[in-house]
Simulated assay, not measured.
Amino acid sequence: MPFVSSHALALVAGVAIGCGQGGFLAAIVPLVNSLVTAEERRKVFARRDAVLNATLAAGSLAAGALTLVLPRGVIPYFFVANAVGILPLTLAMQIAGRHARAADEEKEKAGGGEDGPLLPMAALVRLAMPAAAVQLAVFLFGFSQFEATAPLVSERLMQMGLFVVSILLAGNVVVIVSTQRLVTRLLEGRPETDGLRIAVGLWTVGYAVAGAMAFLPYGFRLTGLLVYAVLFALGECAYSCSFHPWLISLVPDRELTRANALAGSMMGVGNFAGPSIGVALAVAGSAPVVWFGLGLCCTLITVAVGLLARGQAAKAPATAAA
């Protein structure tokens, strides 16, 4: 990236980074799953999300501070630092892969391995589509909206300073890191789909509060945004300890990489298209229109997840009888 001299080369670099991220996302969940027991899944995936948020915040803070004290010309070399920082991850993945292969060999010796041909793609899509659809929806109307639409609406339509955007992001990370363990413990005895419904339900309430406060003076508007950031963080805690365990439960272990790749691609689509939804709502020039519109979308997701949960409950007795 520091040596890019044209738009074409920048595009090539971006595609390379995107392909690498796609491969990583497809592989990391099956790898983590192979190293833990079914009882540990929720805690491990929840911890992974908390660490991810904390390190993203720390990296963003460090980069932002450096741009204040160093000349702008140094910014491209942040990419070099990023590349160097990824190298230890390669070694960690090699070590984890060795442990995963050893665990697979032990399963095969014990007769617990899942040998057999891969499912046809149509069959795999039928199994994984509920999770992929939920993944698409939560990134379209949840994560991408917090990352892109909320800063836009806060600064442009609610007359908040840019510092408020930083406060929202920082508050979001602090809540995730401090409450992730508690939320995971509260949801451990419930089906994963309950965790997903709770997550999107919290986001819906957050949108409603921000929308209602947007009519009021500055102090109330700021309070509404802070409440939204806290509720979004709590919803993210519920999502992070529920989604991947649910996905894992839907498909055989040998299909998990492909199923996770499908869900990951839906995440990419949601991140790509989600900001356009927020911008389209913001064209109305009214912050309440944006917040209540997003809240309505999240309400529809909550209903859809509830229907999926009911469908799974109906299939369970038939599966047990078979």
Score class of each variant (00 low, 15 high):
residue 112 G to C: 11
residue 80 V to S: 12
residue 113 G to V: 06
residue 266 M to N: 02
residue 279 V to R: 05
residue 184 T to D: 15
residue 102 A to K: 06
residue 234 L to A: 03
residue 20 G to I: 06
residue 214 A to L: 05
residue 44 V to A: 09
residue 137 A to F: 04
residue 141 F to W: 06
residue 229 A to P: 02
residue 119 L to W: 12
residue 20 G to D: 11
residue 203 W to A: 00
residue 64 G to C: 08
residue 263 A to I: 01
residue 217 P to M: 09
residue 298 C to S: 04
residue 13 A to N: 11
residue 97 G to W: 14
residue 119 L to N: 06
residue 260 N to S: 15
residue 87 L to A: 15
residue 49 D to N: 07
residue 167 I to F: 07
residue 51 V to F: 14
residue 170 A to V: 14
residue 84 V to C: 08
residue 314 A to H: 09
residue 175 V to L: 06
residue 40 E to D: 14
residue 4 V to F: 08
residue 105 E to S: 08
residue 73 G to F: 00
residue 202 L to N: 00
residue 194 D to C: 09
residue 15 V to H: 09
residue 76 P to N: 12
residue 264 G to W: 00
residue 27 A to C: 07
residue 239 Y to G: 02
residue 92 A to I: 03
residue 176 I to S: 00
residue 171 G to I: 04
residue 197 R to D: 03
residue 25 L to G: 08
residue 286 S to H: 13
residue 216 L to V: 06
residue 104 D to Q: 14
residue 154 S to Q: 07
residue 249 S to A: 15
residue 299 T to R: 04
residue 90 T to I: 11
residue 138 V to C: 10
residue 280 A to C: 09
residue 72 R to E: 15
residue 58 A to G: 05
residue 165 V to W: 01
residue 282 A to C: 07
residue 87 L to K: 11
residue 203 W to F: 03
residue 111 G to A: 12
residue 237 C to I: 03
residue 217 P to H: 10
residue 117 P to A: 14
residue 159 Q to G: 12
residue 241 C to V: 13
residue 71 P to C: 10
residue 269 V to F: 12
residue 91 L to G: 10
residue 11 L to R: 09
residue 307 L to P: 03
residue 196 L to Q: 01
residue 202 L to I: 08
residue 264 G to S: 05
residue 203 W to R: 01
residue 219 G to L: 12
residue 158 M to L: 15
residue 266 M to Q: 02
residue 16 A to Q: 08
residue 252 P to A: 08
residue 269 V to S: 07
residue 250 L to V: 04
residue 74 V to Y: 08
residue 278 G to A: 07
residue 252 P to G: 09
residue 133 A to G: 13
residue 127 L to S: 10
residue 275 P to V: 03
residue 239 Y to N: 05
residue 211 G to N: 01
residue 9 L to V: 12
residue 20 G to Y: 11
residue 53 N to K: 04
residue 120 P to Q: 11
residue 121 M to T: 05
residue 123 A to F: 10
residue 3 F to N: 10
residue 228 Y to T: 02
residue 263 A to M: 02
residue 63 A to Q: 09
residue 26 A to E: 01
residue 151 P to T: 12
residue 62 A to C: 13
residue 181 R to L: 14
residue 227 V to A: 05
residue 70 L to Q: 11
residue 284 A to N: 13
residue 292 F to P: 01
residue 85 G to Q: 03
residue 164 V to G: 10
residue 310 R to G: 10
residue 290 V to L: 04
residue 294 L to S: 01
residue 25 L to M: 11
residue 212 A to S: 08
residue 306 G to C: 04
residue 100 A to W: 08
residue 289 V to I: 14
residue 281 L to A: 09
residue 321 A to W: 12
residue 289 V to N: 03
residue 152 L to W: 10
residue 161 G to H: 04
